[in-house]
Amino acid sequence: LPVTNGVTATRIRRGRDGLVAVETEGAGVVLARRLVLATGRDGLGGPRLPDWVPANPGPRIRHSRDAVDFTALAGQRVAVVGASASAVDNAATALEHGAAEVHLLVRRAALPVLNRFKSMVHAGFTHGLPGLDDAARLEVLKAAFEGAVAPPRESLQRLARHPGFRLRLETPVLSVAEDADGVTLRLPQERMRVAMLILGTGFAIDLSLRPELAELAPRVKLWSDVLQPPGGLGEFALYPYLGPGFEFQQRDGGALPWIERVHAFAIGAIASLGLISGDIPGVGDGARRLAEAIARSLFVEDAAHHLAAVRDYADPELLGDEIPSAALVPAHV
């Protein structure tokens, strides 16, 4: 397939003749019969920011998804919030670039030690999880999320070799104040001054955070529209409720079929289809399922064309010269 770089999708909307129109910077308006959103961890939402983060943080407060000039942190004190893989790796990178001190601030009393998702990396879950009913599938996923996910052992070992590393457990951030020279953090027992604060706080699924999805977001069926289990849905409430081919479903009936021509091949598909679109072990199976679903839907849509093609098929297998005339026995008259 042709690849075009340097193109930003700015708006996804209904196009002519039921097509999907993608307005872009760099390629004009692209019309598509099917659109796949393979946009990564934040493609169906954005960074998860604690409520103490300013609405418009400046350059001294960065999320782990943002570009960070680590070389500028040499000799500086840095704070990193969280115990995720991205938090630990950002902390280690800062130290490896010469930061004098890096404080890893963790709300929990201990680092998580398990990654229950690893127990799901086998063919049974890949092919079986989507077959469970909604409530049962959600219970499995909620069980995997319980207790959080441990950072990689190797990433912690990267940190441990640096004398400037400080692990601060049971240390929530209460508030921050950013200025041109750094950030002041208010912690339970003290105030801390750092040159930069990096947030390893993960990502939230929320279609309303994506400007290019503004026309889709209020019309897409969410998990909160179809299931209200005892104890609630938690963060899954805002996850899109997808069809078997990763396609969005319409919230209000069938008036806007173009919405179902958009496929969400991103981490937000986990609640509907399991671990086959956002993590490495199952992404090949997910891509195959996505491709087969799109091929099937296009075939069904073009059924009349395919019927005509079968009837018009004219590539003969036999050319008439296969049997010598001497071998022909005249029919009895």
Rank of each mutant, 00 (worst) to 15 (best):
T126D: 08
L167P: 07
L129M: 02
A123E: 11
G182E: 03
H162N: 11
V176R: 02
P172C: 02
G182M: 05
V173N: 07
L174Y: 12
S155L: 08
H162Y: 01
L132Y: 09
R168Y: 02
L159P: 13
P112I: 13
D134Q: 12
D134Y: 07
D133G: 12
L185H: 07
E178I: 02
L114E: 14
D181R: 13
H122C: 05
P172V: 04
G124V: 06
A180E: 01
R116P: 00
H127V: 06
S119G: 10
A123M: 06
L159S: 12
E178V: 01
G164A: 00
L174F: 14
A148H: 15
T171V: 01
V149G: 01
R137I: 04
V173M: 02
D179G: 15
T126K: 10
V149T: 15
F165Y: 15
A180M: 03
E170C: 11
T126G: 12
E170M: 13
V121Y: 15
F125E: 01
F125P: 03
V113L: 12
R153I: 13
Q157M: 14
H127P: 09
V149H: 08
G164H: 06
R161H: 04
V183W: 00
A135T: 03
S155F: 00
R168W: 01
R161Q: 15
S175C: 09
T171S: 08
V149Y: 10
F117V: 12
P152N: 06
D179H: 10
A143S: 08
V176K: 03
P112A: 04
K118Y: 15
A180T: 12
L159V: 13
V113C: 05
A136C: 02
F145Q: 15
D133A: 09
G131C: 11
G128T: 07
A136I: 04
A143C: 04
L167V: 08
R116D: 05
T126L: 14
L169Q: 01
A177P: 08
E154C: 10
R137E: 05
L185D: 09
F165M: 13
F117Y: 14
A160Y: 13
L169G: 06
A160K: 15
L156T: 06
S155R: 08
